[in-house]
Design a protein around this nucleic acid. Structure first.
Lengths: 198, 198
DNA sequence: AGGTCATACCGGACCACGGTCCGCTTGTGC
DNA sequence: GCACAAGCGGACCGTGGTCCGGTATGACCT
C-alpha cells in the first residue's frame, strides 16, 4: 500500500508540467555532454526539449539553477551518504576523519562534474553560496567543526574548509596549476588536521 | 632635464588614445560611485565618457578588466607596500607576521572597494585568478609560505590562504553572515598561525 | 612649415545570449 | 461539460562583446 510522501499543501503539479521538466533536464544533460556546458545556450536547450524558452525559465529560474538541477540526483546520493551512509563519510567516525572524508567526496564529485558545477558558480552572481546544496554542505561541516573544536569560531572555520572545495578553485588547481586529485586530497587532509588540533 | 622613462619599444601611444583612456576611467569611477557597479552598463560608461562603445572595449578588453583598471592606483599602493613598505607588511618581519599583515591589508581593501572587486571576480568567468594583481598577490604569499614552512606543499597552502580573501567570500561573510571586519582579521590571523606552525 | 602617408584609432551598427512578459491554451477538479 | 487557474511559448528587451569602414594623428620628408 502506497502512502503519499507528503499531503501536498499546493494543488498537485500538472502532468504536462512534470513531463516538460523531465524533457528539459534530459535535453540539458544531453547537450551539456555533447557540446560542453559553455557552448550550450538556453535557447538550444529549449529547442532540444521541444519547448518554449519561457517554459525553461519558469521551471528552473535561471541558468545556474538549471545546472544544479541537472546534478540533483548525484547531490542526493552524496547527502544520503553524509547522513546515513557508512563511516567515515556517514556518522560513527571522529569529526576530523569525517571532514577529511567529506573533502575527498567533494573533490571526487568536482572531478566528475566540474564543468556543470563551475557553470553554476559562475553564472549565479555569487548566489550559489545560498543554494540549497551549499546550505546542506555548510550545515554538515559546521556541525563537525563545532564537535572537533568547541572553542573556535565555527562560522569562520567552516568558510575556510568550504572555500577550497569550490569549483572555481578546483578548476584552477587541477587544470591551470596541474595538481593531481591525490595532491588535493592530501592537502585538504593536512588542512583539516591542522585546523582541528586542539 | 627630462629623461624618457623607457625608450618605448612600441611606437608611442597616440594622444587621443591616452586622453580617451583617462576619460573612460573617470566616467567609470564616477558612475560606479553614483549608481552602483551593478547598475552601470558599459554603454552608459561609454556615453558618460563621450566615446563609442568600441573604444571602451578596445582599451580595456572586457567589463572585469575595466573594473580592475579602476582600482589600479589603489592596487599599486598596496604592491608598493608589500615590496618596499615598512614591516610587518613590507620586508623585515617574520613570514607569519607578514602573512597576517597581508591578510589584514587585503581585508581593509575589500571593505573599501568590495563592489568593484566583486564585480571583477564575478564577470571574469573565473579568469580573475589569472589577472596580474592576483598573480602578484600569489607570488608574495607563496614566497612567505615557502619561508615559513619549507617542508610543505607551498602551492596548495597558498591557495588556502588566498581563498578566504576573495571578494565573493568576503561579501558573504561580512554581509550575509554579519561577521565584523575584526572577526575576519582575527580568524585569518588564527588560520595563518595554525598553518605556519612547524 | 607644409604636405604626404601608413596606421593606430574611433564609433556605432550589429550579434547572441540570458531573462521577462503577457495573451492564448490546456489540464484538472467539480 | 464547465470554469478557471496553471501552464505555455515566442516576441521582446537590455546587455556584453565584436567588427569594419572611415578618420585623425603623428612620423617623415622636402
Amino acid at each position: 500500500m502506497e502512502l503519499p510522501v507528503l499531503p501536498a499543501a499546493q494543488p498537485r503539479e500538472r502532468a504536462d508540467a512534470v513531463a516538460n521538466r523531465q524533457r528539459i533536464l534530459d535535453a540539458a544533460t544531453r547537450l551539456f555532454a555533447e557540446r560542453g556546458v559553455g557552448c550550450t545556450s538556453m535557447d538550444a536547450i529549449a529547442a532540444e526539449a521541444g519547448v518554449g524558452k519561457g517554459t525553461v525559465f519558469r521551471r528552473f529560474g535561471d541558468r545556474a539553477s538549471l545546472a544544479l538541477a541537472v546534478l540533483d540526483a548525484s547531490e542526493t546520493v552524496l547527502q544520503e551518504s553524509l547522513i546515513r551512509g557508512p563511516a567515515p563519510l556517514g556518522p560513527g567516525a571522529p569529526p576530523a576523519e569525517r571532514l577529511i572524508a567529506f573533502g575527498a567526496a567533494m573533490l571526487d564529485r568536482l572531478e566528475e562534474h566540474l564543468e556543470i558545477l563551475r557553470e553554476s558558480e559562475l553564472t549565479s552572481h555569487g548566489a550559489y553560496l545560498r543554494s540549497s546544496p551549499y546550505a546542506v554542505h555548510r550545515i554538515h561541516v559546521r556541525m563537525l567543526v563545532a564537535q572537533a573544536r568547541p572553542d573556535a569560531d565555527a562560522d569562520y572555520l567552516t568558510d575556510i574548509l568550504l572555500a577550497p572545495l569550490s569549483a572555481v578553485t578546483f578548476a584552477e588547481q587541477r587544470h591551470t596549476r596541474g595538481l593531481s586529485l591525490d595532491q588535493l586530497k592530501a592537502g585538504y587532509g593536512d588542512l583539516v588536521a591542522r585546523l582541528t588540533r586542539a
